[in-house]
Design a protein around this nucleic acid. Sequence first.
RNA 1: CGGGGCGUGGCGCAGUCCGGUAGCGCACCUGCUUUGGGAGCAGGGGGUCGCCGGUUCGAAUCCGGCCGCCCCGACCA
Length: 485
Amino acid sequence: MATDQRLTPQSKDFAAWYTELVQLAGLADYSPVRGCMVIRPYGYAVWELMQAALDDMFKSTGHQNAYFPLFLPQSALDREAEHVEGFAPQTAVVTRAGGETLEEPLVVRPTSEAIIWPVVANWIQSYRDLPILLNQWANVVRWELRTRPFLRTTEFLWQEGHTAHATAEEAQEEARRMLGVYREFMEEWMAMPVVTGEKTPSERFAGAERTFSCEALMRDNRALQAGTSHYLGQNFARAFEVQFQTEAGRHEYVWSTSWGVSTRLIGGLIMTHGDDEGLVLPPRLAPHQVVIVPIWKSEEQRRTVLDKARELRAALSGRVRIHVDDRENMTPGAKFFEWERKGVPLRIEIGPRDVAGSQVVLVRRLKGEADRKRPIDEAEAVAVLPELLTGLQAEMRAAAAARREENSVRADSDFEGFRSRMAGLGGFVYAGWCGREACEQKVKDETKATIRVIPDQEFRSQEPPERCLCCGRAPAEEVLWAKAY
RNA sequence: CGGGGCGUGGCGCAGUCCGGUAGCGCACCUGCUUUGGGAGCAGGGGGUCGCCGGUUCGAAUCCGGCCGCCCCGACCA
């Protein structure tokens, strides 16, 4: 519905801008349950587009969807020591059901390893049954102290991939492959560039041997962990007795992986591209890529203009997601503002003058071009619209990448410089790290910045850093520091 | 759990200091006029003032207790 409420500018209060935008763009709403949000139809439409794209990618890498229960027996969760320890503080537990106290409490899944592996163990006898490549789309619950729509909620939607392999090498490759899939999705679909790499031991998933991550930089210069992929080694296989017989006839535990992205991606999308007018959606994830706003005065004009609008929609449907906003009793101006707030990439205005001249007025949502609004021949519009959208997608991606680079520093900078940067501007800082947890912790305590990732080769500096940012010793690694969500 | 703020029609708020039976803007409904950047006029509907208790002839307002939400910190995708 139309509203004249203005957004707090990003520069004034980014957090306020974000929460207001989520509401005003109709993406989500608060709910009667603390920490749990309602995803509204427009927000859910974005999620469905994300799901469709990711699901295709999972299928084409050989994965199959399945569904495992919401409840985990407490005893199952308890079987992998680090895993329980990691999740215990965040679990919701059902102790009563059917009017009686349960003999064994049921944990609402914070992630599904503990119910998948005991079951899948029965599906695996020999190496011929491997690899097992599963994915599930599900909701999970992690009790959070502080929540924000999409970024951190008590219940959230995600996909979790779970795979089992006959060798460690193959499992590691799988974890890496899926990280690559995430990266491709984030860059190609979300137009959100990411730095990939490995997490330090302190930031690892509970129970994992190695955790890989995609890290994106938001417009307020804070990092967002957008997706993670874990090499679990044989930890879960041992805990849940997932064994197979090798070609040579021996029994071995499988090597497994898990990987996930969540509705948090929508938060990333908002904070990567949104501006003071509202949401800005990349065409590939826009529920409406083009909205036609008809303009009329008389009843006769209304008919002509609407006919033209529907004709145009018909000419483009199948190639472009296009919507005709034929609501009465709402002025064109109000519609312009509403669709801009909702981030629709392109708008077409059709009035009596346009119909007479066989033209339409084309307006792009993205700022930064002098002729943001221009008349275009009707037939030409039909021809060029799809490629215009492709162009916008590329433009958004390039702009986001440029912004990230402008806010990335590569320097063996001194700790004081780093401290003041993190207190002010923020952004990504590539610097040396000696590899000791004490240094990682000290920097975190003093600056709130954390090691987001040990970047993959392609992101590393040409000149490797010479000293640890914190203690000045010879660095073991170059790492990416930032304040994170 | 610590610090700060706030609970009054769907949303945003005023009224609270100084008690007298609830008001404004937006949204909503009806009608007419409008429509190329957030329409105008007229009429209309909608609120146990977060909850419980106390003081009082009388409480949104004063007192006591409780609950909830938001923001900032410690845990996390």
